[in-house]
């Protein structure tokens, strides 16, 4: 089990590297090699580290542990085919990690990053509407049951395409350099991770790798169905290519505009959910 966890982390970091490379190529830059994020993680882990004088030490360190811990939990729920609601709950609670990183150091830049991450509190709400739509079709929220349903009825990507779009948007909002990644805007230095350097940043990189892996795997499991391992990896690379195109071709929005767009998407999803509820299961 620990081996799978470590492999998933490294593959997730590799995916982030591919993401970065494709964005660079679209923008006609050479870009870093695709294993750059793995090197990043190792580089940070070899740096001299301390805790800032102004920080609250327990939270400063604890939030790194929590960040890795919650995504480890999400990974095992994915492996065991547990409830998708728990994974999405963990996904939403990743925000708290961002707040913790941002606020615990006492640095003003970290604080701005933390405040921005509170502002983006809307980004996950479309997710729950799409979950409700999935539940209407499959009558269950267990990943294993959803995959079984798709084996019989075909992939949900075709049956419930708008729900897939909504979840895609939510994943997009968590990718670096995307239109909704307002917590990582350049004017905030490094946003919420400004003060977490050295091994703390290496821990955050591990969390990011695991997060990317889990999110993409959940998307494939929920909307494509059960895949064998090679196809799962191919699907994830394909997905990250699409995400990279979306990120490279769109500008970053201003914080409040990004929230408004996500709210409008939620409203559209609510309309769609109402239609599904009335038409599919009257």
């Amino acid at each position: 089990m620990i081996a799978e966890l470590i492999l998933a982390t490294f593959f997730g970091l590799l995916l982030l590297g591919i993401h970065r490379k494709i964005i660079a190529r679209i923008q006609r830059r050479p870009g870093p090699p695709i294993w750059q994020e793995i090197l990043h993680m190792l580089k940070f882990s070899f740096k001299t580290t301390w805790i800032p004088k102004t920080a609250t030490p327990v939270l400063f360190v604890g939030v790194v542990l929590i960040a890795i811990g919650i995504w480890t939990a999400a990974f095992y729920i994915l492996v065991s085919g547990g409830s998708i609601l728990v994974i999405l709950g963990i996904y939403m609670l990743h925000k708290i990690v961002e707040h913790g990183f941002g606020l615990s150091s006492g640095s003003p830049y970290g604080k701005y990053g933390g405040v921005r991450s509170v502002i983006s509190a809307a980004s996950e709400i479309p997710l729950f509407v799409s979950v409700a739509v999935i539940a209407v079709y499959t009558h269950s929220l267990d990943l294993s049951a959803i995959m079984q349903y798709q084996q019989v009825h075909g992939p949900l990507l075709i049956i419930a395409f708008p729900a897939a779009c909504a979840m895609f948007l939510v994943i997009l909002s968590k990718m670096p350099f995307g239109p909704f990644s307002i917590v990582e805007a350049k004017e905030l230095v490094s946003g919420y991770k400004t003060e977490h350097f050295g091994i703390w940043r290496a821990g955050l990189e591990i969390c990011n790798g695991l997060k990317t892996f889990v999110l993409l795997a959940v998307f494939l499991a929920v909307f494509i169905g059960p895949l064998s391992l090679p196809w799962l990896l191919v699907g994830m690379i394909l997905l990250i290519v699409i995400l990279a195109f979306a990120c490279a071709l769109t500008p970053m929005m201003s914080p409040f505009d990004s929230v408004t767009i996500q709210m409008l998407v939620t409203a559209l999803m609510l309309v769609y959910a109402a239609i599904v509820l009335l038409v599919v299961h009257p």
């Binding site: 609250t56 327990v58 939270l59 708290i96 707040h99 913790g100 606020l103 615990s104 006492g106 604080k111 933390g114 405040v115 509170v118 502002i119 509190a121 809307a122 709400i125 929230v259 996500q262 709210m263």
Partner: peptide, 20 residues
């Protein structure tokens, strides 16, 4: 959201563990 505006401003208060 969409009633998050006040909460985001409350986050500017010092005292990270409590504000979280």
């Amino acid at each position: 959201a969409p009633f998050y505006a006040a909460k985001a401003e409350m986050f500017r208060a010092p005292g990270a563990p409590y504000v979280i």
